[in-house]
Nucleic acid binder design. Structure first.
Length: 189
DNA sequence: AGTTCGATCGCCT
DNA sequence: GGCGATCGAACTG
């Protein structure tokens, strides 16, 4: 498998969000195929963490593309994003669901409440738990490691479906959620 | 310094 | 479908 290079991420956020579908995330002995993403834009998007300018938490989103933005939410969960756009331009993509590939039994041990393979990584906080991605990974370069995004050796064709983003209240009607149509590993059909 | 509230999940009915 | 858990970031004063 070939890791995605920096130029892949140095594009408009929506393009990156769509292009990430079908790509593989590997961390340690676990990996999964991206089946659902959401774009968070730098301007005109009140739901984005960058909506009110730079803060200590969101600073990596203003940095170079191809880095992980990991944040802590609801007192217990981590969520993984990838930074898009050139440096100094905000924009990132939330990874919302994975189709587990490697390390399925390990993922089950990490997420005992999941009673089927479909439930292992079908949500942004579920997949970070399944792949053991923590707040300490905030800012890591995903063109290198330990978290690697890559192109699968064989990519089967699929249709992309678009919808509103999930779980937000501001800018809630923007069509910025992208997922593989009819895929059973997405968080919502 | 105090308050609000969230890019969620899992358990309950 | 509804709600409680749980806590830090960011806003208010």
């Amino acid at each position: 498998m070939r890791p995605l290079d920096r130029s892949f991420y140095m594009r408009p956020t929506i393009e990156v969000a769509r292009a990430l579908l079908g790509k593989i995330i590997t961390h340690g002995d676990t990996s999964g195929r991206i089946v659902e993403t959401e774009a968070y834009l730098g301007s005109g998007d009140l739901a984005a963490h960058t909506a009110r300018g730079p803060t200590p938490r969101n600073r990596v989103i203003f940095g170079p593309p191809g880095h992980a933005y990991v944040y802590f939410i609801y007192g217990m969960y981590e969520c993984l994003n990838v930074v898009a756009e050139p440096a100094d331009v905000a924009g990132c993509v939330l990874i919302r669901a994975l189709q587990p590939i490697d390390g399925v039994s390990l993922m089950h041990r990490r997420r005992p409440s999941a009673h089927s393979i479909e439930d292992l990584a079908n949500g942004p906080a579920k997949l970070t738990r399944a792949l053991r991605i923590k707040l300490r990974h905030n800012g890591v370069d995903v063109t290198r490691g330990p978290i690697v995004f890559s192109v699968p050796d064989e990519e089967e064709p699929f249709e992309i479906a678009v919808s509103k983003r999930i779980g937000i209240t501001k800018s809630a009607d923007l069509p910025l959620r992208f997922y593989i149509k009819d895929n059973r590993f997405v968080s919502r059909g």
